[in-house]
Amino acid sequence: MKGMSLIVRTIANISFPFILIYGFYIIAHGHLTPGGGFQGGAVVASGLVLMLIAYNAEWISQRIKESHLSIFESLGALSFVLLAFLGIIFGTAFFSNFLVGTESLFGGIPLDGAANINTGGIIPLMNFAVGLKVIAGLFAIVYVMAHFISKKEGKIA
C-alpha cells in the first residue's frame, strides 16, 4: 500500500485537527448538545482513518502501535463498568447517578432548568469512557485490515 498523492496529503494535514476538535467537542458536550460518546468517537476515528488512507500503513504504525489501541479500548470498557459499580457503593443501585447535586466535579446543580458543562453527574465521565472505547475500537478494525493488505502485497511483489 503506497499512500496517496501530495495534494491529498496536504488536504488531510489541514483538515485533520479540525475533525479531531469537532469529535472531542461532541464527546465533551455530550450531555448538552446532540451527540455523545459513540457519535464523537466515530468522528475522531474517521479523522484517524483519513490519515491512514492518505499516508500508508507503515507510516501510521510508526506512530500508533496496535497494542496501544487494545489497551485504550480495554481502559474505556473497564472505566465504564467501574463507574457503574461505583453507583452501588456511593449511590443506590447499579448505574445510579451518584455525582449529581454533590457540588463536586460534574456535580453542579442546574439553576432554573439550564444545564451547563459542569452538571450531569456521571454522564460526562461515561461519555469520555465510551468515546475512548469507540475511537480505539473503530480505528483498530481499519488499522488491522490495512496492515493485512500491506503484508499481502509485500508477499506478492
Binding site: 448538552l32 442546574p110 432548568g113 454522564i123
Partner: peptide
C-alpha cells in the same frame, strides 16, 4: 434536567435511565 443535570434528553436516557442497554452495546462493540 432536575434529576440528571443534562439538557440533552437522549444522552440522559442512554447513560442514566437505560444504562444496561449501553452496557450491552459496549459488549457488542
Amino acid at each position: 434536567v432536575e434529576e440528571t443535570g443534562a439538557s440533552n434528553g437522549v444522552t440522559a436516557v442512554v447513560f442514566d435511565y437505560r444504562g444496561f442497554d449501553t452496557l450491552g452495546e459496549a459488549t457488542v462493540l
